[in-house]
Amino acid sequence: MNRKISLKNILLSNIVPIAFFILTLGAVIVAKIPILFLLSEIVRRISRNTFLVLALIIPVVAGLGLNFAIVLGAMAAQASLFFVVDWGITGIKGILLAMLMASVLSIGLGWLVGRTLNRAKGREMITSMILGFFANGVYQLIFLFFIGSLIPYSKKAFLLPQGVGLRNTVDLYGVVDGALNNIWIVSIKFINVYMIPLFIIVGLCLLITFLLKTKLGQDFKAVGQDMHVAQTAGINVDKTRITAIIISTVLAAIGQIIYLQDIGTINTYNSHEQIGLFSIAALLVGGASTRKANIWNAIIGVILFHTLFIVAPSAGNRLFGQPQIGEFFREFVAYAVIAFALAMHGWKTRKGIH
């Protein structure tokens, strides 16, 4: 009897990754994509996207929920890359300079977000989402109207015809395109494994593991479990929450640079918009919730979520004769996963399932 109850609890606790695994497996079977191509794409997306998903873990541990405001870190990363391109600083030097600039900018943005979320305790997720929309408006204003007018920009080829505002696409080719990827590539049966981004991801996993064992990490956990008890224990709750958001924003900025050097181009006004949505969806697919997340949730989520992303167009084409349906399906799945995961979290909380 206890074994049945235990099995039931395990299944219910992992209902989101189990359901998504079945969905992804079905899509892979329907799509009939060559296995080597599928593995190659999965490996590349692991090195490209995992860092961004890992950036979400600390705020969840600290009780701030799913941090939609990582888009501010992504905006800081893109702003830094625009100027690296303008100054013509290429290769690994350009990447490191962009990471440094983006990190400094993200510390300020993270501090502002943290201060705001401290005034919206209990409503952090919706507040961080709205902050992302607000910051996007400021970002659009700066790079559509201020660049080339108030802010000098020498690369006229990337400006709009009137000389004010960046074009829709900024090409990183010849500047920082593949700067991290190309340092060390291991080829296994036509599958290119980019070792440096993977080592950076492993390093971040070790850093998060170490951080959560330190005094600061224990403070994160205490604040995440119960703010009142943490305050009574002498922990500065507001400062701890701000620190968690700053760390998350800085990591998101670095993760966006890793992502964009792999892509090779920046979609000036759209590249950052889906980062929060897709990263959160991937984390939830891996079995995380608004109150609990770990490194394995991020890794499993990236593999499952992006496998479905790879095969969805082919599956849509085979099922309906329209590959575009697969594109719409990917967008639908991202929102559906978040809604389903949050609904299941609320249901499990009421039922007392952990």
Rank of each mutant, 00 (worst) to 15 (best):
I208R: 02
I185E: 07
I200K: 03
V170T: 05
P197H: 05
I200H: 04
L207Q: 00
D177M: 04
L204H: 10
V193N: 04
V193A: 04
G163F: 14
V202Q: 06
G174Y: 10
F190Y: 02
C205K: 07
L172C: 13
F199G: 09
L172Y: 09
S187C: 00
G178Y: 04
I185A: 03
K213W: 00
V175S: 06
V164C: 07
G178P: 07
D219M: 07
L166N: 06
S187N: 14
N192D: 11
L198E: 08
I200T: 04
G174V: 10
V176D: 07
V175P: 08
K215G: 06
V164T: 12
L216T: 14
I201D: 06
T214S: 12
C205M: 15
L180N: 06
D171V: 02
R167I: 02
V193Q: 00
S187A: 07
L180S: 07
W184C: 12
Q218M: 14
V193E: 04
L204I: 14
V176M: 10
V193K: 01
L211E: 04
I201H: 10
M195L: 15
D177G: 09
L204R: 09
V164Y: 10
L216F: 10
I188V: 14
D219G: 12
Q162N: 13
I185H: 03
T209S: 15
S187P: 02
L166H: 09
W184N: 13
M195W: 10
Q218R: 15
L204E: 05
Y194G: 02
I208V: 13
L160C: 02
V186P: 01
D171A: 01
D171P: 01
V193H: 04
F220N: 11
F210P: 00
L160R: 15
V164M: 03
V164G: 05
F220V: 00
G165K: 03
V175L: 07
T214M: 03
Q162R: 05
F190D: 15
L212N: 13
K213Q: 12
T214R: 01
K215R: 15
I200E: 01
S187R: 11
N192P: 05
L211P: 02
N182P: 02
G203D: 11
T214G: 02
D177V: 06
L216A: 05
K189N: 10
D219C: 05
K221Y: 15
I183S: 03
V186L: 10
I191Q: 01
I183T: 06
M195R: 05
L166Q: 08
N181I: 09
I200C: 12
T214V: 04
G163R: 05
G203M: 13
Y173T: 15
D177A: 13
V175W: 07
D219Q: 14
Q218H: 09
G217Q: 02
P161Y: 12
V175F: 11
W184Y: 14
F199K: 06
V193M: 08
V193T: 04
A179N: 09
F190L: 11
C205V: 13
P197L: 03
M195Q: 08
A179C: 04
K215T: 13
N181A: 11
D171Q: 03
L206M: 14
Y173K: 15
T169G: 03
K213I: 01
P197S: 06
L198S: 10
I196S: 06
L180W: 01
L160P: 00
T169P: 02
D219V: 00
D219F: 08
C205T: 14
L166G: 11
C205H: 04
